[in-house]
Design a protein around this nucleic acid. Structure first.
Lengths: 189, 189
DNA sequence: AGTTCCGGCTAACATCCATTAGCCGAGCCG
DNA sequence: CGGCTCGGCTAATGGATGTTAGCCGGAACT
């Protein structure tokens, strides 16, 4: 019915498997049963397709972060919740997250700057969470920046190898990874 | 003097910044002061340039792993040493490591299969290290596979953000990240 | 029934790119 | 000195690709 959504999904799948530049409009068309040029009846451009994927992804991550942080005042609890949201998104929307991390270079400048800004803000949020825990004396790390990078990197990894039909459920991955995050920052309960 | 090495280095830099497909032979040529076609006096093909980068990278990582593992019998010590080697390589050779992780899709099939095999073996090694620690009762994780992925993912992150002229020295990053790895697997000393 | 418009299609355009062919100056070898 | 080889260059090749233009069948509305 909704041709646009079909196209977006097909493009996402192909961008993930082959990369943005290696995916042709003809490929995307074939995946939804039409020729390349016909796509332009539904879509503005290949670049626009990528831009939509990347901005909605970053906005979804940011929204998840805000909800997680608002749910508690305890630093450890907040970091766990934020990491859960982070990892859950990377598992549930692994294609979006994968492309979002990998194809910033392919994004052209109005959108690119916007996505980079969103991402910087997102990273900053995690750094603050770690810093709060250190200030409260419940986390112990040498470098706050390093630790927050490490936590974020865990999520990126998930989007690379997670499979819905794998042996581990989404909840299991989310739980273990958020445990990893707390261990990593030296949380003492 | 050694034109080939200059070209390799320039290609590596460009592959990192723009991606393999977005980098043209003319770009690489310009970076070493010649036109695109002239490169073929020194290099077999663009694909070959990538293949050399990726295979030498995987072989260097594997060699580092073997040395690290041979250095001790204690599971915790072995995991720390292996992670140190892993992270150190990703910091010291961040361009190689970055391209190595990101451009497998651009590698064509004789080399691609080879690199994937090397990588699978490498991952398997880390899984074993974690499994040994669990068996010895010094590590505590729900899923060995998940924990070893997490440790490996930490390294990949390093190659994305590490800068030689940053505020953190290579040794500092290596030390903290290997500490993260041990905390992550629930090492009880 | 006639008309409109949606959503396909093919053809054409304008690039861009890896690679090959063939030329040529300069330094080295005999 | 004369030729050979090295390593550059330009031109050409062969193909791919994003996008635009314009056609056309059929469904839907009046």
């Amino acid at each position: 019915m909704d041709r646009f959504e079909d196209i977006r999904a097909a493009a996402l799948e192909l961008f993930t498997r082959q990369g943005f530049r290696a995916t042709t409009m003809a490929d995307i068309g074939a995946a939804v049963g039409m020729r390349g040029p016909s796509l332009y009846k539904h879509v503005e451009s290949k670049q626009d397709l990528l831009a939509r994927i990347m901005t909605t992804t970053m906005e979804a991550l940011s929204a998840g972060y805000r909800t997680a942080v608002a749910s508690s005042d305890d630093p450890a609890q907040r970091l766990r919740r934020a990491t859960e949201a982070h990892v859950r998104y990377h598992a549930r929307h692994r294609l979006e997250a994968f492309v979002g991390n990998r194809e910033i270079r392919s994004l052209v400048d109005p959108h690119r700057a916007r996505v980079l800004a969103l991402r910087a803000e997102y990273e900053h949020g995690f750094r603050e969470l770690v810093a709060d825990g250190v200030a409260a004396g419940v986390f112990h790390v040498d470098s706050v920046r390093l630790a927050s990078y490490a936590v974020l990197d865990l999520g990126m990894g998930v989007s690379a190898w997670y499979r819905e039909d794998g042996e581990l459920t989404e909840d299991a991955v989310v739980w273990q990874y958020s445990t990893f995050a707390l261990r990593l920052v030296g949380h003492t309960r």
